[in-house]
Amino acid sequence: MSELQTVSFYQTGTFTVGNRLLKQEERSVQANMQRTNSLNSGHRACQGCGEALGARYAIDAAMNASNRQLIAANATGCLEVFSTPYPETSWQIPWIHSLFGNAAAVATGLAAAMKVKGKSDVRVVAQGGDGGTTDIGFGCLSGMFERNDDVLYICYDNEAYMNTGVQRSSATPGAARTATTMPVGERPGNSFGQGKFLPAIAMAHEIPYVATATVADLRDLEAKVVRAMSFRGARYIHILVPCPLGWGSASNDTIRLARLAKETGLFPVFEAEYGEIKSALAIRRPLPVEDYLRPQKRFAHLFGKNLAVDTIARIQAKADKNIRKYGLLAKEAV
């Protein structure tokens, strides 16, 4: 069996959640029969919720990395509402929900409390959706970054305010239909702004660690949480979590869409330390953005009677720019 060690090919490698051929310690947290299930069954997320999945992936990984010494602060939003309606909570970890816009600040307070109480082994995460992170919670988040408070902030980005009924956030992509950017008029869907890519803003704070991830690549996500937990100070992970409700996609397509977002180049998956990009996940099977857009009803108006060629080209250009900027097609990007 000694020769086994020389074979680095494992059928599915690390693409699947688990792999019976890997050594126990090389397997994912999610593959473990004794995983924490930090976000327990019985939560009220929609069928196929990407955020519920992303949250369990991330928090279980953080629990593992912190030897189960973890506290979380949660912004208002889907994740909060579906996980903690009285009289039941799905969280198995110490968890607090305060407000929509203050999760980062509450976490700062928690971290300060842990420090002053001599419980530095207890780690603090803050989490919120894109609205609670890129919009209303942005001030507190930036303050937490700037002070380099010992908090890992995780944004579950589903690109709109889903909890309130799918309204536009500053993370909503151009052309997307939301309740406040309806596909009517001369320029249907969300207008193309200049974009507000929070990972880049986080990097501008030169905090120890910034990473993006998707629910389509668990091993990458877990590795990033582990890496993030190896630092002290402010850290930020931005996870793309497709939303069947808001995106108008099939509940079984959640992971596929996250994968397509990455494979088309629309969502660059990378990590940065102290403001400098360290690596990017290479595109494995390059695809046009159309493959990503078509399965989503929020983009259905692009594929009506008249194909919205210009708009699709504009979205493709954004993907191409990401590919250039982050070197997503380069072999060494792997």
Partner: peptide
């Protein structure tokens, strides 16, 4: 083949 995908990807455990 026990790749654990179903176990992992279920949002509802």
């Amino acid at each position: 083949f026990e790749c654990d995908n179903c176990y992992g990807v279920c949002p509802d455990n």
